[in-house]
Amino acid sequence: MTRTVFCKKYQQDLEGLDKPPYPGAKGQDIFENVSKKAWTEWQAHQTMLINEKQLSMMDPGARKFLQQEMEKFLAGEDFEQAEGYVPPSK
C-alpha cells in the first residue's frame, strides 16, 4: 500500500516518499509534506543547476544556494533556472 501526503508543491494528495531524504527535522518535514513526484522533479532540477552553474558541492555557499532553491521549488514559489533553459512544451 502506498503512502499519500498532501504535497505542498502541488496542493493535492499524492504518493509520498518511502523514507525521509535527509536526516533530522528537515528530512522529516519533506517526508511528511512533499510528494514523490515533487521530490523526483527537484532532484532532476538540482542536477541541472549543479551542472549548468558548475556548482561544487565542496563549497558551503553552493550547498546553501541549493538548499534555498530546494525550499522555493518545493513550496511552489519562483525558483532559479539555468541560463537559457526553456522548459519542454507539453
Rank of each mutant, 00 (worst) to 15 (best):
G84W: 05
D18W: 04
M58G: 00
M70A: 10
E41T: 05
G24M: 04
F6D: 13
Q43V: 11
T40M: 10
L17V: 06
E83G: 10
K53Q: 02
L14R: 15
P20E: 06
G84Y: 07
E15C: 02
M1N: 13
P87V: 09
E69L: 06
D78V: 07
D18Q: 14
Q12N: 12
V34A: 07
Q46M: 03
A44I: 10
P23Q: 12
E80A: 09
P88F: 15
P23I: 13
F31W: 07
A62S: 08
K8S: 14
Y22G: 01
S56F: 01
V34T: 08
W39P: 07
F79I: 03
A75D: 12
L74A: 10
M1F: 14
Q54N: 12
K26S: 14
M70R: 13
P88R: 14
M48T: 09
E52G: 00
L55S: 05
L49H: 04
G16K: 13
D59S: 03
Q43M: 09
S89Q: 15
A82R: 02
H45W: 05
E15V: 04
K64M: 13
D78N: 13
P60W: 02
L66Y: 00
D18Y: 12
P21N: 05
A38I: 08
E52Q: 12
L55V: 01
F65V: 06
W39Y: 11
K26N: 13
C7Q: 11
Q54D: 12
G84T: 04
Q46G: 03
Q12V: 04
E41A: 12
Y22Q: 07
L74P: 09
L49G: 10
A62V: 00
T2H: 01
M1Y: 14
G76F: 03
F79Y: 15
E41P: 05
S35I: 06
I30A: 03
M48F: 05
K19N: 08
E52Y: 09
F79W: 12
A75Y: 06
T4I: 08
F65Y: 13
E71C: 00
E77G: 09
M70W: 01
K53H: 07
S56V: 00
Q81Y: 07
P60E: 06
